[in-house]
């Protein structure tokens, strides 16, 4: 009787371990793709600005699509939420910063465009293009009036590839391939 129980316990433990391993491996692969290295906010003239450094590692699938003339859209999600103790946080600001990166075969240049501002950079290599993309300097976030001096706030930052904007046939293959699941995961820090 006891031996039987032990067997079941061991089997369950092994199953749990395998599931955890598989989950972490998926998470690791996702973290490896895009990663928020650092992020901070500064206040200048009652305006909160974001400075962040994001490391973009494009997967082979994304690289191949880019080389074949497909523009890739990268979305930066920024959320500011008020901490409310036992209750869930109350979201007060939600920003979506869109970037596009594309390759021009004729002039052999990568173009990084900030869709929100229309600012664009022409860059000779992908590494340079992603480093430009990953350097966020003084991105205005919100007015300090919006927040309460007494309360604690949390800022979450995430960078991800927008697969929904891909053309139809490619989008279908994104459902079946993990190479298209490019996201940094949420990076959180407290507002000063």
């Amino acid at each position: 009787m006891n031996r039987k129980h032990n067997g079941i316990v061991i089997q369950l433990a092994v199953l749990l371990w395998v599931v955890t391993l598989a989950y972490t491996s998926i998470c690791v692969s996702a973290e490896n793709a895009f990663e928020v290295r650092s992020a901070e906010t500064v206040v200048v003239d009652n305006i909160y600005y974001l400075n962040a450094h994001i490391d973009y590692q494009l997967s082979n699938e994304a690289r191949e699509a880019l080389q074949n003339g497909l523009p890739l859209n990268i979305v930066l999600d920024i959320e500011v939420a008020k901490k409310r103790g036992l209750l869930w946080n109350k979201e007060i600001v939600h920003l979506k910063q869109r970037y596009q990166i594309r390759y021009y075969a004729l002039i052999q240049q990568y173009h990084v465009i900030n869709v929100n501002s229309g600012l664009q950079h022409s860059l000779p290599t992908l590494a340079v293009a992603t480093s430009i993309l990953g350097t966020i300097v003084d991105l205005p976030l919100f007015d300090a009036m919006l927040i309460d001096a007494d309360s604690d706030y949390e800022i979450s930052l995430r960078s991800r590839l927008d697969t929904e904007s891909l053309p139809m046939p490619v989008r279908l293959s994104t459902y079946f391939s993990s190479g298209w699941d490019l996201s940094s995961g949420w990076y959180r820090w407290s507002l000063r």
């Binding site: 074949n68 497909l70 075969a105 004729l106 002039i107 053309p167 046939p169 490619v170 279908l172 293959s173």
Partner: peptide
Amino acid sequence: LAETVQTAFTEYKKLDYFREPLKLS
């Protein structure tokens, strides 16, 4: 002219790239 060449090449490359996904869909 450069734009035409660029667009034609990109479209062709895209189509070539779409070949397998299209077949799949």
